[in-house]
Design a protein around this nucleic acid. Structure first.
Lengths: 339, 339
DNA sequence: TTGTAGGCGTTATCAA
DNA sequence: TTGATAACGCCTACAA
């Protein structure tokens, strides 16, 4: 790994290094002839400019950071991490921006706020809504450092964000169940403190009211075991819903299992629909009606909003909401689909 | 975002900037007194050194890159991306190394080889085995650029790698089924060209031979639909195995469904066990016996091997294999477990 | 123990 | 159209 620098090229081409620099940036003030000559030599000497030196000189890192909390193994976003990264890269990459992943866990003086933000290692930040403390949000805001949150940060003015329209999603699921003839609904899953649960259950209630129907909401961890337990409880309690909406595929899975054991027919007796569309959803018994959330799109919006803020073309606060898509499958299919 | 530099601190503290630099690096040749004074001023002025300037001066980027092919949505590793990243970060982070994710898709002169490697944007690289072309591998090797592959690169000398011991894993699954009384096995799933399939099926055959048993191998895409189809075919063909090993949870899921429809009891008539342990595995009917692959550990090894090569403490080629763990569940539980 | 000066590899500003 | 020369912000001999 011997390093060829701009000086070597300049010497070899018999020009000043400033000229070489201009050639690299395709400046119009360089004669086509020298351009050709210098380029030939660069190729021949296998030269590539040092990214770091360029960044120092340009006073820009050309990289954006994604903050994660690696200690949280069960976050909603983990499952979609790869897809979101893909979305981000699809807009940052073509703009020649690098993406660095950083764990907020590391504390002490070497935390992300110093290393990335104050140390100007990145030009902007994307993170999941619940990762930052209130103080960190305020600090970023006060530094006027560009960042975009995935998921809306509660009680915080001034933070731009992208999120799935969860309330609307609940409405879509509810409407769908009602269309299929359900009249007594239950919403299962979600932690009361989680804002995702909050917006989804709010949307559920709002939609129920619009239909003039009743329904219950039961919280639990987003696991199959909990979905199973809660369903058993629900049935034992005597409240017999004819439609169930779950907060995740895992919960839905537990629900299906419990219903099957209790000899309820799905969708005959009870319809089941859920948020998220995991690869297994089409293969449960019966196949699960899902609300697809486009997380790639989430990454795209997060990144493009961030880039706008980095290049200064947009400054205001913006909170985008993305529309989910209903994917009807057999678990709610009481009437034939019109084709 | 006004920037405080080392010069500002030097001026404010009335010392030379070299002294400030020494203070930052806690050099022993600075009096405790000035150290205190300079540090106080740094704190007060809210100073953080520029990562980029430091990198230029130190001639080291202090970052490692992870190469991915974002266009491949269905890779084995995607599902474990977050976990692997976690493993990598857990060793690179404490060493004050950053991690940047880079998409190889972007081609042209601005590809990763120039940007990251020749441009010295990263000190080392980690990637999945099938991402690089033969030429790229050779180029990295020839540049003596440190990199570690996740999964062994076939036909390539000189590349260090970490991988799950897939052949051994097949043996573990086979042994387990045989212990449970199975005598006629089938291995389902895997693409013939994929090296993961190759090592797994090889291990399967080897283990069968050791037991003096017979068995079949059928390839297919790693989806539930294919597992379902293949199982139906297998049963229709008249070959009735009493034990099935699948290459992924998805395939296993399809298998279970097909067996259920055909009125085979699991594990009574046929046992089913699979590679990988997805969150849903304990909730299939019956719960699925799995071979757990520790992908966090995979990240840890990849990163620590890379760091050794970056700091020069290790130079040779090394191919580590990690041991999988069998997680017995009801799908293979014919006899009571001895506790 | 501290300061001076040069270097890391670019970009950018003027003159020439 | 080109070339000196000074940033960019830090590190590191070497000198004081």
């Amino acid at each position: 790994m011997k390093k060829v620098t701009i000086n070597d090229i300049a010497r070899a081409a018999n020009v000043a290094k400033s000229t070489v620099s201009k050639v690299m940036n395709d400046a119009p003030t360089v004669s086509p002839d020298t351009k050709r000559r210098v380029r030939a030599i660069m190729k021949q000497m296998n030269y590539t400019p040092s990214t770091i030196a360029t960044q120092l000189a340009r006073q820009s890192s050309s990289t954006i950071g994604m903050l994660v909390d690696l200690s949280r193994r069960a976050d909603f976003l983990n499952h979609f991490f790869y897809t979101i990264i893909g979305g981000i890269e699809s807009v940052a990459g073509p703009l020649h921006y690098e993406l660095t992943i950083s764990n907020i866990q590391s504390s002490g003086p070497d935390n992300f706020m110093n290393r990335l933000v104050r140390g100007r290692k990145v030009d902007g930040l994307i993170m999941e809504k619940s990762i930052l403390t209130r103080e960190q949000v305020d600090e970023l805001l006060q530094l006027e450092f560009p960042f975009v949150s995935i998921g809306r940060i509660a009680d915080t003015e001034g933070v731009s964000s992208v999120d799935i329209d969860n309330a609307l999603g609940s409405g879509m699921l509810t409407d769908h169940l009602v269309e299929q003839g359900c009249r007594k609904l239950a919403f299962l899953g979600g932690e009361p403190a989680d804002s995702i649960f909050e917006s989804r259950s709010t949307g559920f209630h709002r939609s129920l009211k619009a239909h003039g129907l009743e329904g219950t909401v039961s919280c639990c961890e987003g696991s199959a075991a909990e979905g199973y337990r809660l369903t058993k409880e629900l049935l034992a309690s005597g409240y017999a819903p004819d439609g169930i909406i779950t907060i995740s595929n895992y919960v839905a899975f537990g629900v299906l299992q419990a219903l099957q054991e209790a000899n309820f027919r799905v969708p005959g007796d009870i319809c089941v629909a859920t948020f998220d569309d995991y690869p297994l959803a089409p293969y449960t018994t019966p196949p699960l009606t899902c609300l697809h959330l486009d997380t790639f799109e989430l990454g795209i919006h997060a990144a493009s909003m961030l880039m706008e803020r980095i290049d200064g073309s947009v400054t205001g606060v913006e909170n985008r909401l993305l529309l989910p898509t209903l994917i009807p499958r057999a678990s709610t299919q009481r009437q034939r689909l019109k084709e």
